[in-house]
Amino acid sequence: MNALTRAVLSFWDSSIGKKILVAGTGIALLLFLPGHLIGNLLLFAGKDAINEYALWLHNAGHGGLVWVARIGLLTVLVVHVLLTVQLTVRNRAVAQKYSYPATNRASRSSRMMIWSGLTILAFIIYHISHFTVRIGNDYNGTAYLTSLPGHEGDVHNVHKMIIDGFSHTGNTVFYMVAITILCSHLSHGFASVFQTLGLRSRKSDLLIARAGWAYALLIWVGFLSIPVAVLFFGYGRT
């Protein structure tokens, strides 16, 4: 083993090294979410806008970019989950419980990171099966093909898929709960990134915490606007 490999391995093995990787992958996920959100919000710009966007995503870089992004995101996610699970298992093994437990300052969000994280993981699996792999529905069927102005041949009707998806009450409630949990996760995760990367201090603490809440709120409102509009206000449903 050469010196470089050794250094990388000991970084990977150390608690701070793992934390820094969790923070780094967290940043990637934090950046992904607004992008995803903006794409989703195109729903409100009409059927063609979102379908065109979906088509562009699938065709960019001769259809390769979407796979680069998918593999990249998946790797980031796997590392993020693997390391946090490792860290949590370690913490559970070394910590001890009090007969009279008390908490002084830790926020509720911060204390349930692993549970919110695992719930989000379950949601992501479900979400990908639902809308990307499209298992257990007929989103891949001909009913979900449509025309797009300026484009030859049919394209996938993402618009209809989303509207139909959110017309189902069970799906939508799960989605809304998951997004809420995600935002609790983000509110602590956002600020934690700064601390773990050594960019927080007492002076910037409040600013960072507020930015974290603002970010989480934005994501929450943004992602929830679609199911709320569809299920409760009948947006896009005929």
Partner: peptide, 14 residues
């Protein structure tokens, strides 16, 4: 610190 059996920091500030 890691070898001594301590956990890692998850920024609770307790």
């Amino acid at each position: 610190m890691d070898e001594a059996g301590f956990g890692n920091c998850s920024n609770h500030y307790e």
